[in-house]
Every structure is written in structure tokens, then in C-alpha cells.
């Protein structure tokens, strides 16, 4: 149950109203996220699917904000919407540019795929719903940027460095792989 810090304790109504607002926002963004994702999955047009993914990921970012993860939300929008999806769009254009008539994708294995996905969904929902989570009452907080920065430079320094190296390797590897065909006869 979300609440306010102790020094300016809100009245019940105030708190209730805030809660309702956050609940409304949660459901709105949930609908956006899940709806866009479903559209993406079932869309015949791959470009449409890509744009649906943008919306879905943006919705996830909004959910992050609702979870008081402002820095992660910003990163999500920067990296996914600004980076990865542009990359995917480029990929679509580079690979399917010549075959405009094939722009409509066709699905395979539809029956086992839907059965399995449904089973997984039921399974996960059941597990998440049935499990007794030891939750705490979440505290309101201002920004996470400072704390994340401190952690990144202290206990997460080594993973941070490794992540940097990983990115470098990935960039070089991607460059190498995508340019090799020029050397081929």
C-alpha cells in the first residue's frame, strides 16, 4: 500500500485520492502496454509491429515511473525507443526493402505456439497470484539517480566496467559481421 512520509501525513481522503489516481494511471498504462504488445504480436505488417513495440515499451517506461524508478524509465526510453527500435527499423528496411509484397509476414506453428504460450501465461499468473510474497510497505522517495550513481561507482564497479567492455565488443563484432560481405567475391 503506497503511503506518504510520516512528517506530513496525509488525511485519509487525500491518500485515497492519490491512490485512486495511481491506480487509474497503472491501469491506463497497463492497457497501453499489453494492448500494444498484443497488436505487435498479431500484426501482419512488420512495420506496424515495430511501431506497436515502441508504444509497448513506452508503456513499460511509464510503469517504471509508477514504481519510482525514474532513472531506469529514462534509460528505457533512451535505449529502447531511441536506439534499439531505430536499429530494428533499419534492419527491416535493409532486409525486406526488395520484397515489398512479402512485407506481410506469415506465422508458423500457430497451434503449438498458442497452446504453449497460453500454458505459460496461466502458469505464471497462477504462480504470481498464489505466491505469498513478503512485501514491505513501499516508501515514497525523491530521486534514485544519486543513489544509483553511488552504487555504480562502488559495489557495481566491476560489472559496470565489464558492461562497457561488452558493449565495445558488441559494437566491433556487429561492425565486423555486417561489413564482411564486402570482402566476399
Amino acid at each position: 500500500m503506497p503511503g506518504k512520509p510520516a512528517n506530513d501525513k496525509p488525511t485519509y481522503d487525500e491518500a485515497n485520492r492519490l491512490m485512486e489516481l495511481s491506480a487509474i494511471l497503472f491501469y491506463a498504462f497497463t492497457v497501453l502496454t499489453v494492448g500494444s504488445a498484443a497488436y505487435m504480436v498479431f500484426s501482419k505488417n512488420i512495420v506496424h509491429a515495430a511501431f506497436a513495440l515502441i508504444f509497448s515499451l513506452s508503456g513499460v517506461a511509464a510503469l517504471y515511473v509508477l514504481l519510482y524508478a525514474d532513472f531506469v524509465a529514462a534509460t528505457q526510453i533512451l535505449v529502447y525507443v531511441g536506439g534499439i527500435l531505430i536499429l530494428i527499423l533499419f534492419g527491416i528496411m535493409l532486409t525486406t526493402l526488395d520484397f515489398t509484397e512479402n512485407l506481410k509476414t506469415v506465422t508458423v506453428n500457430m497451434l503449438p505456439a498458442s497452446l504453449l504460450s497460453g500454458a505459460v501465461a496461466v502458469l505464471l499468473l497462477y504462480v504470481f497470484f498464489a505466491a505469498e510474497w513478503t512485501t514491505i510497505v513501499p516508501a515514497d522517495r525523491d530521486g534514485t539517480m544519486y543513489d544509483l550513481g553511488m552504487m555504480l561507482m562502488n559495489e557495481y564497479l566491476l560489472p559496470f566496467q565489464i558492461a562497457g567492455v561488452l558493449l565495445l565488443v558488441a559494437i566491433i563484432g556487429a561492425l565486423l559481421m555486417s561489413t564482411r560481405h564486402k570482402n566476399e567475391p
Binding site: T33, V34, A37, A38, M40, V41, I46, A49, A50, S56, V60, I88, G91, I92, T95, T105, V106, T107, V108, N109, M110, P112, A113, S114, L116, S117, G118, V120, A121, L124, L125, F128
Partner: peptide, 19 residues
């Protein structure tokens, strides 16, 4: 969980690698 299932469905059933 719902997002996961949708992603799984996309991975299994779509022909296109980018999908």
C-alpha cells in the same frame, strides 16, 4: 507475465527473424 507470454508467442510463431 502477460508480456512474457506475448513475447514467447512472437518468438515461437513468427517467421520473420526481426519479429
Amino acid at each position: 507475465a502477460i508480456l512474457f507470454s506475448l513475447g514467447l508467442l512472437a518468438v515461437i510463431s513468427r517467421k520473420n527473424v526481426i519479429m
